[in-house]
Amino acid sequence: MLLREVEYARPASVADAVRLLAADDGARALAGGQTLLNVMKARAASPDALIDLADLEELRGIELGADGTLELGPMVTYTQLMESAEARARPILGQVAAQIADVQVRNRGTLGGNVCSSDPTNHFPPLMVALGASFTIRGADGERTVSAADFFLGVYMTAVSPGELLTKITIPSGAGASDAFETVPIGRDGTCIVNAAATVSGSGTRVAIGCVDAVPVLVEPSSSEPDVVKEAVRAAQLDPPSDVHASADYRRHLAEVLAARAVERAAKGRS
C-alpha cells in the first residue's frame, strides 16, 4: 500500500526528538511501526512527519535497581524483554511479551509503542496497571511522571500529548509479589478477547482486566479466593463491547473467570 506522503527524520538525541515533535502538531513518534504503519495504510491517521526513535540508545535500557525497581526504555522490544536477564526480575514481562503475535512482530514491536497505542485489546496496558507501573513523559517544558491509572485515558489515548515522548517505564520492585496473566485470545497468541493481569503481594491483590472498557479496569478483591475475585469483578459492573468475536455477556463472563484464574495462579506462585 502506498502511504500518504510523509516526512521522516531520525534524530540522534531525545532532546532533538522532543524538539521535532513539539515543532509540528502533525508529527508522530515512530517506534516499532507494528501499529502505526497499519494505521497509516488504513488512513485512520495520516501524520505529517514521523520521528523515528530507532537511534535513541537512551530509550533502549533495561535497568534493575538495587531495590528491585525495573526501569525500562520504551524502545525495548518484546524479544528483548523475553531475553533480558534483568527483566527476569519480573518474569511476567517476558511471559506476556512471548504471547504477542509472532517472531516478526515481537522483533520490532516495543513496550513503549504497545502502551502508547492504548489499544484496548493490547496485552501490556492491563499488565502495567496491575504492576503499578509509572510512566516518565518528556515534553518541551520538561519531564513528568504519571501512574498507570493516569496514563491510559481512552481508546488510542494516553497521557502522552502531541509534542511529548514517553521516555521511561518504571516497574516497582516485585519482592514478595507474584504475577500472572490470563487471556482467551483469537487463536494461539492472537488478539485478546478478554485478558486479566494479576499481582498478589503483601499489600493485597490487584487484577486489571483488558478488552472490557476503553482502558484497563482495576479490581482489588479482598482476598485471592476465586469466588471473592468473581464477586469483585461483578461489582465493577463491566459494560464490555459486543463484536464478531464475543458478545458483551460472554466478555463479562470471561472477565470473571480470567480474573479469578489469574489471581489464583499469582497467589500460588507466592506460596
Binding site: E5, V6, E7, Y8, A9, R10, P11, A12, D16, L20, D24, A27, A49, I51
Partner: peptide
Amino acid sequence: MEASATPATS
C-alpha cells in the same frame, strides 16, 4: 543537527 535528523519526504 545531522541531515538525517531534519524531516524530509525523501
